[in-house]
Structures are given as structure tokens and as C-alpha cells.
Write a protein that binds this DNA or RNA. Structure first.
Lengths: 224, 224
DNA sequence: CCAAGTTAGTTACAATTTGCAACTAACAAA
DNA sequence: TTTGTTAGTTGCAAATTGTAACTAACTTGG
């Protein structure tokens, strides 16, 4: 009675970045059958012979489609069902990745598009829903963690980081509170001597993630 | 080149409850091949013909194995890979469910065991890891949400609810802070006239979830 | 070289939230 | 009616947060 059925198993990736102070998602032109040539989340089949697990598959697909390994990558949520893919009952394990925009723009990828998450048209499959889940996640985690730092480059000024947080949260933040919170999170360190001159005003001190947080998220949640 | 491979697709459920003021997980005796007769998370194959999606499968499996539909059920995380199941490369979409202990104990299920999450022996597959993810999640959400209310019954006193929160969090809470937080969350309402006499002392007021939160989690996260 | 304009960053303080101790309330049992 | 026990409240100190007003450091234009 309990016989496994063939189910399409894929991985999709929501690669977020900041462009023009807006939260954007990376779309890739589909090169195969369903929805060929349409823009969709970068994704692909799980290769049971090749991938040790889904994270492996996500890394492989990211490298294939974008040519980079983002500094932050975690599982987002799994989307399943008979209705989401015209090929039949499918499972898509969605991943959530953050990257500095400069990395992706510099490694000029032809098939890639960067689109603001609040200006998306209707995408194939349930990809709008997947992106919505990713936006939800970054909104939530931006409230109490240093996650958005992975959207900045190696070094960045606090005013720029604040703009990134504001893009993630979709609301303006108060300067003093923001800086206090960053200080208290304790994940940043000033880069000695390095400043950023961005116009006719005082230059900003540059910061970077402390090395122990380079590949790890520090969650600081307040007690009950 | 990109050919889908047959991958075993299953759903596993972490059904949590409070017994003797401890956070416990529901285990089910396996009736089939790998690890037959061993205790493991209740789970089963996804039935592509029958289940519309994984949540559907989770509900079906819950009904089959426990005979109930918990008041809280959400996707937890997906566990994948070649190493986790002796049958081969597998995907398990894990679900996270909460239930009042009285419900499960009263509907006396033969094949079920209730085991404290901090007293588990080595389980089949990667089920220890899945349970750890569930405990992480309830720990996290217990800090800022009313999630543990789903572990209480229809009505409950605040002292009992506090004990439930403490079991979830693994630490003692201060009475006044706890009650203030519950008040501020605004998800509870006193049941008029109803009190609980639990010994030679003042009886406690009974509360219940406001009806608008019966099947929904209210997340209250503090701003940056 | 100095004044004006602009953004970076700090300080000071009020408002709010939290942790904690000490209280009162309501029951059972002796 | 006194005692013990837990329920629930009150009041205040400590910590955190929001906000305005400040100083700092630069560029540009006279």
C-alpha cells in the first residue's frame, strides 16, 4: 500500500541583494521546458548521484547560475504539491541567500536579472510565493540580528548599513538607536584608519564584520 | 543531462506536548522495514495521488498515527541526503506540531510513546537532529510569542501556562514579567467566573486563547 | 582663508520597559 | 481562628529606547 511515487525534486534559490537602496532578487532566464526563456528563480533538479544533500545542490546551482558562493546561505522553506509545476507533483526545497550587489554585478552574468522585490511581475511556478517567504524572513531577522550585514561588502560605513537595514525592513530607522543596536550586537569592528568620503561632508568610518561572524549568523533575542 | 532521479519523499512529524512539566515528543513504533519495531518520529511516504501537498500528507499521517489534528501545525525544515536513510537518497519534509497532552493521553493510542526531549536515546535516521530543530524553534518562538499556549488545553491558569513556558524555554521565569508579557501580547482572555482550585491556597483564574488566535500564531517582535 | 552647507557621529535626557522585592488575596487544613 | 501555601498586585529601581540638540569633519564657493 505505501509505495513511493516518483516526485520531481528540485532546489530553488532566492538570492537577495541591495541595488539602489532597494531589496532585490536575482532572476535567471529559464533554459528548459516549462516556462522556457521566462525569468524565474535560479533552480534545478537535485542530482542524487552528485549532491550529498540539498545544501550541496543549492551550492552547485548557485555556482552554475551565478558563478558565486554567497557569504550567507540557509534553507528557507519547502514548497510542494501537485499544482505548482505543470510536470506533476513536485518538491522544491527553497534556499535563502544574501550577497553584496557589487559581487554579482562585477562578475557580469548574462542570463541574470536583478529585480526589486516590490516590483515583481507574475513569475512561473509559485516563485512569487517563495520570494514572499524570503522577504518575510529577512524582515523578521533584520529586527533582531545582524543578517543584513551580509548584503554589504567587506567593509561599509554605518550610514550605508543603515540604508541596507531600512531597505530590508521597509521603514526608516533612527540613527542613534540603530548605532546603539549595532554596538550592542557586537558583530562589527571599525577598520582602523579607513574612511569613506562621499561628498562635501565629514567622511564616515568604515566597519567590517568581525571575523568570527563572517560565515555565521549571530542571533540575539531578548528574553521573556 | 539534467534528468530527475528517483528520490524517496517522506514527511516526518515532531509532535510536542508537555507531560509532568517537561517538554516531550511523541514517538511511534515503526511497522515497516528500515528500523522495524523501533521508536521513531511518526512519518510516512508522500502519496502523490492522494495528497495535494506536504501539509496534506502531514495531516493524513497525523490522523493515521495519532488520531488527532493538533491545534498548531507548521512546516519545520526539510532534511535531505544520501546518508540519512538506508534505502537511499531521501527527502523528509519535517513538520512541527503542538498539542495539549490531555488530548493524546485520553485517546489512548497503543503504538505511541511520549518521551522527554532531553531524555531521548539514539533514534533511527536523523530523527534526533529533526527533534533538535523543533526544540530550537519552540525555544526561539517562546521568547516572543504565544506559541506555547497551544500546549495548554482549552482553558488554563496563568501559573500553569508559566510552567509550560518554562518547560519550553528550559529556564525559570519571573512571575510579574511573565504576566505583564502575556497581558501585552493580548491573546488571552479570562474565562468569567471559572477558577482552578489546586490545593490549600487561593484558586487561580482560568484563561483561554481569544477565539481569533485559536488557529493562528501572533508574532510580536520588537522593532530595531 | 573663511563662511556656508552637508552628512557623520555624540551627548543628554525624557519616556518606556523591565527586573525585583514586598505586599495583599483567597483558599485548605489543623 | 491561626497557619501555610500559592495567586495575584503594587511600587520602585535599573535598564533600555526614542528623540532632539548638539559637535565634528569634510567640500565648495566666495
Amino acid at each position: 500500500m505505501d509505495i513511493p511515487q516518483p516526485i520531481i525534486s528540485t532546489v530553488d534559490i532566492v538570492l537577495l541583494l541591495i541595488k539602489d537602496e532597494r531589496l532585490c532578487v536575482t532572476l535567471s532566464k529559464r533554459d528548459k521546458d516549462p516556462y522556457e526563456n521566462q525569468e524565474a528563480l535560479p533552480g534545478g533538479y537535485i542530482h542524487a548521484e552528485e549532491d550529498r544533500d540539498c545544501l550541496d545542490a543549492a551550492v552547485r546551482i548557485l555556482r552554475q547560475k551565478t558563478g558565486l558562493l554567497p557569504p550567507y546561505l540557509e534553507q528557507l522553506k519547502t514548497f510542494t504539491g501537485a499544482a505548482r509545476d505543470p510536470r506533476g507533483w513536485s518538491i522544491s526545497v527553497a534556499y535563502f541567500a544574501l550577497v553584496d550587489a557589487d559581487l554579482i554585478l562585477s562578475s557580469a552574468n548574462p542570463g541574470l536579472t536583478i529585480c526589486p522585490v516590490d516590483a515583481l511581475r507574475r513569475l512561473p511556478f509559485d516563485h512569487n510565493e517563495i520570494i514572499a517567504a524570503a522577504v518575510d524572513r529577512i524582515r523578521n531577522k533584520s529586527q533582531y540580528s545582524s543578517l543584513p550585514c551580509y548584503l554589504a561588502g567587506e567593509t561599509f560605513s554605518l550610514p550605508r548599513l543603515q540604508k541596507i537595514y531600512e531597505a530590508c525592513l521597509g521603514e526608516a530607522l533612527h540613527k542613534v538607536s540603530f548605532r546603539r543596536k549595532m554596538d550592542e550586537l557586537g558583530v562589527l569592528e571599525a577598520v582602523p584608519g579607513q574612511t569613506e568620503s562621499a561628498g562635501a561632508h565629514r567622511p564616515a568610518q568604515m566597519y567590517r564584520l568581525k571575523s568570527e561572524f563572517k560565515n555565521q549568523l549571530k542571533l540575539l533575542v531578548r528574553g521573556l
